[in-house]
Design a protein around this nucleic acid. Structure first.
Lengths: 210, 210, 210, 210
DNA sequence: TATGAATGAGTATTCATTCAT
DNA sequence: TATGAATGAATACTCATTCAT
């Protein structure tokens, strides 16, 4: 029996397994159709075992929310990992990255959580977290750009950041409604160009037109 | 009390009563928390009577969706009813109206339905309807503006319309996340100004800045 | 308006229409699946109108039971209508007629009512009625046969009649189980031959064999 | 009270408990009056526990059908367990046993299932199972009798078996209708004697008469 | 940790029946 | 007679959660 522990090792990250299973099921069936039994089955564990890891459905949903936060913040990692880039390049990458994610299930899960946030303060707080940290990131880019003399001085970085976020979110929503990521991406790029014109100093570049 | 007979004629628009009650409850508690018994009580009718008018929950939700369509299209009425206005004024009114609606429950209900649309084709079709008719309306304004020489000729009205819609939707979503309608309105107005610059011919007006 | 009555005449026999519709539906879906709304629709009338003709479901089922009694007794009509026949011929006709009815829906309806009779005294009484009148008919044939010297004197007509009924019923049940009317008919004819041997005086006929 | 621990081991055969409770309730109130809550109460368990063992009403009814199959096949056990008997004795025992069962609730349950079998293929298959295995048993007896030289060679064992089954079933049905097991038993014994005459070689025995 | 049997409150839906017109 | 809107009690079934092991 000396090596019996080896047999029981495969579940190094039960909580993670559960959360990922729940995340996937929410994307597929929505919060409305989320069933504990299904999650347990998908995670390869027992109905009751699930309750050992999460005290209840709400706790699990919150954990999924936190997992979603990570999903979004992970996309920042490559940027940070890269070499030094200009604030403008970073901004452009923000839009490029968003365009690539228009078909992501994360958007579906986010919408589910946004709907729930209207009456679940814990989820609302989570989404505010995502919002704040994303805005913080954008503000830091914008301020760097201003410091570098790339962007206009008198801009309100918070307003610009919120505008960028609204644009990206709107494009994502539009993609979900139309089920046409290309059209939504085009709209987003249009706004991206307009915003660039707005904030870049001496933006002699000809106005976006099509 | 001269018209007390009105008391005995309570069922002039039962279906409407039910749909409005359901609409309100969805805004309050979401689709997830929608209960037939609650709807019936709110509509002042019996649990079974509700099923007499709607064959099931899905049918009712679809009816609520159609009601939402009407909600949105009604906002077009004042514009049409008013006297002749320029295409630019109409466009500006579009953003003004949207800003005023940022706190509207319609947005919450819309988000609920958008979440559900991911796996309910009937609801998805409804939302596409809203989308198409809204875009159609915007395109007609834009084309009128082009015909009047107000807007650039080479613009693609569909792209511009989709961009406007994405901007408005994004601002709405942002308002829901931040619970700060003013900030979202500011972002929307920023995009509105950028779009105006983009499409208006000879837009000599100084670039929006803050 | 002189001929307005003509317009409202088409329903000379509403009760009959309803009972026939119910009879058919019981044969199709069983008592368990019998729905008032379906009966009304099948009878071409309104849900509520049905209740004008039958005070409730039990009353309707009883009426269907009486209709079934008529169904069975009608098969005697041709015999009575025909010219004088021997008791033996009549007896043979009884089996022949039964064989022809093995696929009849009447058997299905009868089984439904028999099941219900176990806890519905009114239906039980109806079935006893059918039973008694059928036995009475058979006894009268047998007694006539005895009077004519065709059948043995010492036979108990009631026992013979009950035996005949059991044989016919058993074959009907067997047909329902096997869904093979031919096999059931063969079994019934075998018993018929045995019974004939039993009761016919000087039955010199060689024993049935196969 | 030495074995009081038995109290804490009440769930040795939950499925069996449930099926038996359902069987009894079907006999009492019929399928039409079968209620999940009643079954659960009768089985001493919770409403939901029942659904833990049976996925739905249909599954439970099918299980009851299988239980009924066992009920019938158990009656063969004593025969098999006994010492060697002649084929004729076995056949006689068949009728004797059937006569003793004329008042059995199994007949009531069987009738309920037969009614349902008309539109439930699963139940129909079950009844066909009972039918086939019973016929198989009878055929084996008849063939043994033929091999022993007791029964006529040229008999078709399947026809005879079906005839026996029809006779026994008919008597059972007759008993249900008349609520007079004695009269039904007499009719069955009459047919039994006739069949014996039919199949037994050199049946010198005087014809049954009463 | 982990299991899975057991729970029971909750809920959509059915359907016979009533009743104003 | 006839309608059909309205009722509400009845019921199968769901599902998060508990708990003994």
């Amino acid at each position: 029996m000396a090596r019996s522990t080896a047999v029981s090792v495969p579940h190094l990250d039960r909580r993670g397994d559960i959360v990922r299973a729940a995340y996937r099921l929410i994307a597929e069936r929505g919060l409305e159709g989320l069933r504990f039994a299904d999650i347990a089955r998908a995670a390869g564990i027992n109905n009751g075992t699930l309750l050992y890891y999460f005290s209840g459905k709400d706790a699990l949903i919150e954990a999924v929310g936190r997992f979603l936060v990570d999903q979004y913040s992970q996309s920042d990692a490559p940027r940070a990992a890269g070499r030094v880039t200009s604030a403008l390049d970073e901004l452009r990458w923000e839009f490029t990255d968003a365009a690539a994610r228009l078909n992501d299930v994360a958007g579906v899960v986010y919408t589910e959580l946004l709907a729930r946030a209207q009456r679940d303060p814990a989820v609302a707080a989570l989404l505010l977290d995502i919002d704040a940290s994303w805005r913080g990131w954008l503000v830091s880019i914008l301020e760097r750009g201003q410091a570098q003399g790339l962007f206009h001085d008198q801009l309100d970085p918070h307003l610009v950041a919120t505008t960028i976020m609204a644009a990206i979110r709107g494009a994502g929503m539009q993609a979900m409604v139309m089920r046409d990521a290309a059209a939504a991406a085009a709209a987003m790029q249009a706004i991206a160009a307009l915003i660039e014109q707005w904030i870049v100093r001496g933006g002699a570049r000809p106005p976006y037109r099509r």
